[in-house]
Design a protein around this nucleic acid. Structure first.
Lengths: 130, 130
DNA sequence: CTCGAACCTGGAGTGCACTCCATGTCAAGG
DNA sequence: CCTTGACATGGAGTGCACTCCAGGTTCGAG
């Protein structure tokens, strides 16, 4: 069963433009074409795109994903490289999480102080105070 | 006490380019100039930049900060608008936190499964499996 | 006095991940 | 048959926050 670029994109939840963009970046191999020169996607092609999107949802960049896809294709599926990639990504997420948490806590604290009615604003004061 | 753009930038921990960039975006008012036409920063100017950087550290974008700076300058310091800005930002951070947490948990789970030695890779399988 | 560092300006380039555009071809419904 | 919509291409534009460059002036140390 094959699909046009439009229905393939819809099935995955992206746009045809994005699909062509991934192809241009060589994240996806050129799909087949029909007699009229239009792209034809097989289930296998869709699986690759879904893999890409899943990895993206796990926080990997397209550059990371380029690696991941190559490893996925490789016959030995060199597990160690993937593991290292995942580990680095997890470390980065930890740092990000701490930062986001800190910002959130601070804003929560400031919002609790702030009635939104007074003429003085604890939020501005906090930012000013450093 | 006044500063050259270089020492002002250093004091804040940014580059002169960034300082000029903020000025171009009108996030900072044009500072004074000396006889030779070089920028001269007063303590007051530095305070504004520090405010900007603090707000940035709290997760505000430059567009947000433009608002914040205007409000800071305003005579009434309209607290309600600031509060709304902060609230929206906090909500966004909550969403972001949940996402980052989820990705982190998933990667941790996968890394626990993955020895990095076997020929099969749970991480790739997970991404494939959807 | 000289030399290198710091400064000035306007504008271009970066990185990420798309997104949109103009122009043209092709296919299916009414 | 005609229109409308999906598809094709190459290339430009978006948004964010810088960052760098060329070409010229000025400052401060020796």
């Amino acid at each position: 069963m094959t699909q046009s670029i439009g229905s393939a994109a819809k099935a995955i939840g992206i746009t045809p433009d994005t699909l062509r963009y991934y192809e241009k970046l060589q994240l996806l191999p050129p799909p087949g074409r029909n007699a009229a020169g239009r792209r034809v996607y097989r289930e296998e092609d869709l699986a690759r795109v879904r893999f890409l999107k899943q990895a993206q949802a796990l926080g990997f960049s397209l550059a990371d994903i380029r690696q991941l896809l190559r490893l996925r294709e490789s016959p030995t599926r060199a597990s160690r490289t993937v593991r290292e990639l995942a580990q680095r990504k997890r470390d980065a997420l930890e740092v990000q999480m701490r930062q986001v948490k800190k910002m959130h806590a601070e804003l929560t604290r400031l919002l609790a102080l702030c009635t939104g009615s007074g003429s003085c604003c604890p939020i501005l004061e906090r930012i000013e105070g450093g």
